[in-house]
Design a protein around this nucleic acid. Structure first.
Lengths: 116, 116
DNA sequence: ATTGTTATTGCGCAATAGCGCAACTATGTA
DNA sequence: TACATAGTTGCGCTATTGCGCAATAACAAT
C-alpha cells in the first residue's frame, strides 16, 4: 500500500525543483553565479531590480537547497550548491530555442499559406 | 535601446518552459508519453485522476508546444513534440536526486551532532 | 552609543495557477 | 433520430506566487 502516493511523490518533488526554476529573476541569478560567487548587492546591481526582490529570490533558492551562502564581514556571498545543475539549465534552454525555431518554421508555413 | 528587455526576454521564456514543468501531473504525463503516444482517456486511467484535470494539463502542454495531438476516430492521441526534451527532464531529476542525497547526508551529520 | 552599509523579513495586495462541477462539442453506432 | 463514448471548456472557488514598502538584523567605523 501507499504505492500510488510513493510513485507520485517523485513527480511532486521534481515539480518543486522546476517551480524554483520557473521565475526569470531566479534563472538570471543562477546564470550570474555561473562564473562564481557574488554578493546579494552585486546581484542586485547586475540585475537592476530592487534589493528586496533579489533577497526574496535568494531566500527561495537557498531554502530549496539550490544556493549556499557564506558571510564575510558585512557581505553575504552566494554560490551554486550544485554547479552540475547548470547542465540541466542549459539543456532546458536548448529545448526552448528548439521550440522557438519550430514555432518560427510553423509561423513561416502559415505565412506562405495565407499569402497564397 | 531595448537592450535590457531583450536580454531579460530569454529568462522570461526559459521561466515559462520551466513553469510548464512545475506541475506533478504534467510531469507524469510527459513521463507516460516517453514510450509513445497515448489517448487522453488512457492517460486519465493510468494516472487515476479526473478526466477534466488531465484534459486541462494536456491543454497547457499543447498550448505551450510541448505536446502534439492527432485525432483518430473518437480518440485523440497525444505525443511529445520534442522527445529530446526528455534529456532535460532526466537531468533535472538527477539534480533532484543529488540534492536529496546531499540533504540526507546533512541530516545524518546533524543527527550525529545532536547525539554527541 | 550612533550612524552607515548590507541584507533579510513581515505585511498586504494583485495576479496567477489548480481543480471540481456542469455544460458542451465531436465522433461513432443503432 | 437518439444514445453512448471521448474529450474540451466556462465558471467559480481556493491556494499560491510575485513584489513593493516599511521595519528589522548584522556588521563596521567613528
Amino acid at each position: 500500500m501507499a504505492e500510488k502516493n510513493d510513485s507520485k511523490l517523485i513527480y511532486e518533488m521534481h515539480a518543486q525543483v522546476c517551480s524554483v526554476l520557473s521565475n526569470a529573476k531566479r534563472l538570471e541569478i543562477i546564470d550570474l553565479l555561473r562564473a562564481g560567487e557574488r554578493t546579494a548587492g552585486g546581484l542586485t546591481r547586475a540585475m537592476g531590480v530592487s534589493k528586496t526582490n533579489v533577497s526574496q529570490q535568494l531566500a527561495v533558492l537557498r531554502n530549496k537547497g539550490i544556493l549556499l551562502s557564506r558571510r564575510e564581514d558585512q557581505h553575504i556571498y552566494y554560490r551554486l550548491a550544485f554547479p552540475g545543475m547548470l547542465k540541466a539549465y542549459d539543456l532546458l534552454r536548448q529545448v526552448l530555442l528548439l521550440r522557438l525555431r519550430e514555432q518560427g518554421k510553423a509561423a513561416a508555413r502559415l505565412g506562405r499559406k495565407n499569402r497564397a
